[in-house]
């Protein structure tokens, strides 16, 4: 579940602790938690869910005729108890996440196009697109970005295709001698 995120804009702010202490932060099961909060959440979740399940178990076995159904219903109540425990700990312990509203940066877009070129080997040609996709690109304001990148790619390709045998080793975009 671990994946690196795109770096957001602006410098990351340090954890905002309400009481001035630095919490013990850990990455557990794919996200960040604070040690103390996690321990209390688990205790709370366990107590609330087992408590509701136990109460339902005792109460329902007296009210409901069929033992089978009483058991199934106490599980339902127990699962609602799990949810209640979860809601209670969500209410008590705030997420250890910083959420930034992202603004689009033109430099970001250039970078993505460069990555796509690397991944796919070529950006392809806008001329081959169906009118639907062209209209979509215009609407999103991405047409110019891809047009420029495509022109750039063609230039690089032309330069590489020239029969220059003294090119440095790293200029082997179209193969060269290996």
């Amino acid at each position: 579940m671990n994946q690196s995120l795109a770096k957001p804009l602006g410098a990351p702010t340090p954890p905002a602790t309400t009481d001035g202490r630095t919490p013990n932060l850990y990455e557990v099961w794919g996200d960040t938690v604070a040690g103390r909060d996690l321990m209390l959440s688990i205790l709370l979740g366990g107590a609330v869910s087992l408590g509701t399940f136990g109460l339902a178990h005792v109460a329902l076995h007296q009210v409901v005729e069929s033992v089978q159904m009483a058991k199934a219903y106490s599980m339902l109540v127990g699962i609602l108890g799990c949810l209640a425990g979860g809601v209670a700990s969500a209410w008590l312990f705030k997420p250890k996440r910083l959420v930034l509203e992202q603004v689009v940066d033109p430099a970001f877009r250039q970078q993505v196009v460069a990555e796509l070129l690397k991944e796919y080997g070529s950006l392809g040609r806008l001329e081959e697109l169906s009118p639907h996709v062209v209209a979509e690109l215009h609407e999103l304001g991405l047409y110019e970005l891809f047009r420029e990148a495509q022109a750039q790619e063609a230039l690089v390709r032309e330069a590489d295709a020239e029969p220059d045998r003294h090119l440095p080793m790293n200029a082997s975009l179209v193969g060269g001698r290996s």
Binding site: D31, S41, I42, G46, S49, M75, C82, S89, P95, K96
Partner: peptide, 20 residues
């Protein structure tokens, strides 16, 4: 992202393990 802490998700699953 702002309201549902990971602790609460874990607490819910721990509750589920115990109840089931």
């Amino acid at each position: 992202a702002r309201k549902v802490s990971h602790e609460s998700v874990i607490a819910t699953f721990i509750g589920l393990v115990l109840v089931i």
